[in-house]
């Protein structure tokens, strides 16, 4: 996404004359506001980081440096278990939704077929629908159908990993397909046609022409699916069973029972994990993104996450 801004910036800076730039009091107010926004964004995170090392049972009060809370974290088995479930769910739901979402994007962007409008609408709904409604939907669905599946197919599904993964895939497909579609829309279709003209099979065309072109979009969609899965509390809470839940839901339960320094340390580690993900994705985009077409396609990348 960084590349995109550069390409647009270089155009618009030519237009911005000196008088357009804010001056005097306005300039002062604007820059103060900007500084305050960054303080607002980062002060809570930094303070949380500091307090996670504080040797004081009362969170939010400094009591000397300690690593006790991280040790407590390392020794806490329910948390370790929930981390394992979180990672499994995130990987499975990202994998499945990337494949299904990319296929959905290809179908809608490249073909006309019967029912495509309905499919398009269906694909948008999980993005618009509030988390709480989605949670209710999955709860009622599983309460109706788990017994049915058991009696008809003989597969016993208990609430836990399977139900959480099914629900996460259900909302991730849409986000992946939106990001990939944006990328596909900016791609030159004639490249695919040329490959087909040169007797490449459909699969070869996809593998060697389409996929490399949409790779940044697919990667962006994957990152989005991963983040959404690791972020979700409400839906997971409704479909998880006793003893089988993800880290955010477990931590959410802890917070509701009262804040403890242990939560501080867990939070900081979760924070570190998400920052690491962002940095990795920025690095990945730096290498793959520059090869892709400088199309407007990326415009839709970030605001797409916004719709959650």
């Amino acid at each position: 996404m960084v590349e995109r801004y550069e390409s647009i910036n270089s155009e618009s800076t030519g237009m911005s004359g000196d008088t357009a730039k804010p001056r005097g009091t306005t300039k002062w107010l604007l820059s103060t506001n900007a500084i305050l926004v960054y303080v607002f964004f980062y002060a809570p995170i930094i303070l949380l980081l500091i307090f996670s090392f504080s040797d004081n049972r009362n969170v939010g009060t400094w009591g000397g440096f300690t690593l006790d809370w991280y040790r407590e974290f390392a020794a806490n088995e329910p948390i370790q278990d929930s981390i394992w479930i979180s990672v499994k769910v995130a990987l499975v739901s990202t994998g499945v939704s990337v494949v299904l979402g990319t296929m959905a994007a290809l179908a809608l962007e490249r073909f006309r077929f019967r029912g495509d409008r309905v499919f398009d609408g269906l694909l948008y709904l999980p993005i618009i629908i509030p988390d709480v409604t989605m949670a209710v939907m999955m709860l009622l669905f599983f309460s109706q159908f788990l017994d049915l599946i058991d009696s008809v197919l003989g597969i016993q599904i208990t609430k836990g990993f399977t139900t959480i993964a099914i629900s996460h895939i259900a909302f991730s497909i849409s986000f992946v397909s939106i990001v990939v579609r944006a990328r596909l829309a900016g791609m030159d279709e004639r490249l695919e046609e040329a490959a087909l003209d040169l007797y490449a099979t459909r699969w070869k065309t996809f593998r060697h022409i389409t996929l490399p072109q949409i790779a940044p979009g697919v990667a962006g969609g994957a990152l989005l699916a991963l983040t959404l899965s690791l972020d979700d509390v409400v839906i997971t809470q409704f479909v998880s069973g006793p003893g089988a839940t993800t880290l955010p839901v477990y931590v959410f339960g802890l917070i509701r029972r009262g804040v403890t320094p242990l939560i501080n340390s867990v939070s900081v580690l979760m924070l570190a994990a998400s920052v690491l993900l962002v940095i990795l994705s920025l690095l990945a985009q730096r290498t793959t993104g520059s090869k892709g077409p400088p199309a407007d396609a990326d415009t839709d990348d970030e605001p797409s996450r916004v719709g959650i």
Binding site: I45, L47, L48, V59, V233, P248, M270, L271, L277
Partner: peptide, 14 residues
């Protein structure tokens, strides 16, 4: 991109 739950929790501490 950072975890939403954690960002809310930070304010609980503050």
């Amino acid at each position: 991109w950072t975890n939403f739950l954690v960002r809310n929790y930070a304010w609980r501490v503050l």
